[in-house]
Design a protein around this nucleic acid. Sequence first.
DNA 1: TCAAAGTTAATAGTGATTATCATTTATCTT
DNA 2: AAGATAAATGATAATCACTATTAACTTTGA
Lengths: 131, 131
Amino acid sequence: MAKRNFSSKRNAIYNAVCSTDTHPSARWVYETLKPSIPDLSLGTVYRNIALFKDEGKIRVICNINGEERIDGVTSPHSHCVCTCCNSVTDVDDNAQNSDDYPAPAKLGFTVKSRDIIYYGICAKCSERLPH
Amino acid sequence: MAKRNFSSKRNAIYNAVCSTDTHPSARWVYETLKPSIPDLSLGTVYRNIALFKDEGKIRVICNINGEERIDGVTSPHSHCVCTCCNSVTDVDDNAQNSDDYPAPAKLGFTVKSRDIIYYGICAKCSERLPH
DNA sequence: TCAAAGTTAATAGTGATTATCATTTATCTT
DNA sequence: AAGATAAATGATAATCACTATTAACTTTGA
């Protein structure tokens, strides 16, 4: 039997993560919800994010400047990380359409998931900066 | 003109990183060198690792349990991260042999580098654990 | 020998994350 | 509706990786 969910704050946190494509940090979620839920505690945000991770409802994308960035979309796709503005954006990558990874398998490594991250400069930063 | 290097500790730290394929953390480097260099300070390890990063002599692979894991090999290759024992191992991946990433480029994203990480269970853990 | 530049140990500080715990809230009986 | 139980939370302190500071020590080149 699935665990029931008694908590409106938990829902709010999950919805906040899922309703953005910014791949937010825990602090972003906290600061975003705080105005509409004034008695929200940062600990609650961390606690529930940890819960969602365990449940597989969200995934960790990367760690930028010591902050973990998460994603509510768990279907396979890749990410672009801008080393200038620290934005994390989605990118559909044909390379993702595979379940077979011969190179790790050859080493006896059982692949559960694969992450591809492109590091570089996003479109906005390219425009803004001198060429 | 390249900055000169007057420091034997700096060399020891760089050599420690390069002479292992464990993709160590700063703490690992510190604890590995401490017996032979008793007056080594953890701050020195962090400071020099930051320096090597700036110089492009080492790269950051991932962040496991809050710890940054680094690699002295900067030529393109992928990594396997065991979610059981936290080992990080190299894997040669044909997918690395490309300089052209059409999917991010389509979004105006300029790719500087790409990281592929396979998450799963390493050979040792597979043997050791019940099937 | 000497001064300037490089490097360091020791230490304190920072910021993200986690643990603790008393309190509040929701659910389940009766 | 009321009491019992379990779930969830806020507030706070603690932890842990990492960074900054600073005074002392080294190396170099003159």
